Computed example of a mutant assay.
Amino acid sequence: MTAHVRVGVQAILREDGRVLLGLRVNTFGHGTWGLPGGHLEIGESLIGAACRELEEETGVRATGARVVCVTDPEPLANHHMQVGVEILGHTGAIRVCEPHRCERWEFWSLDALPEQLFIGSAEVLRKIRDGALLR
């Protein structure tokens, strides 16, 4: 087995100071709340991957985006690094497009996030909350 680092992308969609999170079901992280996102695919840019995942999961199309944070890979937790991509604008209405993976979408205040956060989103959300973003 070849060891490798996986790259996850997390789409950060904000509204009125709150961030969009989905309740994960029937997949890794079942019962936790996470940002829309997934893995970077061969040939994709980080922004392209985040925008693709956002549209696949929520039906929303990004009209602008930028990379705002990168987390260190966790050697004991699947050796994943996560890239936070802020969605600067969007079109469309948020809906559950993958009901087999996400039960519902809700906006949460960064000061009152749910206790059960998806491992891939937790550090990205902490960086956003603490203002530790790329400039």
Rank of each mutant, 00 (worst) to 15 (best):
M1K: 08
T2K: 13
A3Q: 12
H4F: 06
V5G: 13
V5A: 15
R6M: 09
V7G: 09
V7K: 13
Q10W: 01
A11P: 15
I12K: 04
L13M: 13
E15V: 06
E15M: 09
D16G: 10
D16F: 05
D16C: 10
L20I: 07
L20C: 12
G22W: 00
G29W: 00
W33N: 05
G34N: 06
P36I: 02
P36G: 15
G38W: 01
G43C: 08
G43E: 03
G43F: 09
E44F: 08
S45R: 13
L46G: 05
R52P: 01
L54F: 04
E55M: 12
E55F: 11
E55Y: 08
E57Q: 15
V60D: 00
V60L: 11
A62E: 06
A62N: 07
T63F: 04
A65T: 01
A65E: 02
R66P: 01
V67R: 15
V67P: 04
C69E: 05
C69H: 03
E74C: 11
E74P: 03
P75I: 09
Q82G: 07
Q82C: 12
V83W: 03
V85K: 03
E86T: 04
I87H: 05
G89W: 01
H90I: 01
T91L: 14
G92N: 14
I94E: 03
V96K: 10
V96S: 10
V96L: 08
V96R: 06
V96I: 06
C97Q: 12
P99N: 11
R104G: 04
W105R: 07
W105N: 02
W105Y: 03
W105S: 04
S109N: 07
L110G: 10
L110N: 02
A112D: 07
L113A: 08
P114S: 11
E115I: 00
Q116L: 05
Q116A: 14
G120M: 04
S121G: 15
L125Q: 11
R129P: 00
G131P: 00
L133K: 07
L133Q: 06
R135N: 07
R135Y: 01
R135V: 01
R135E: 10
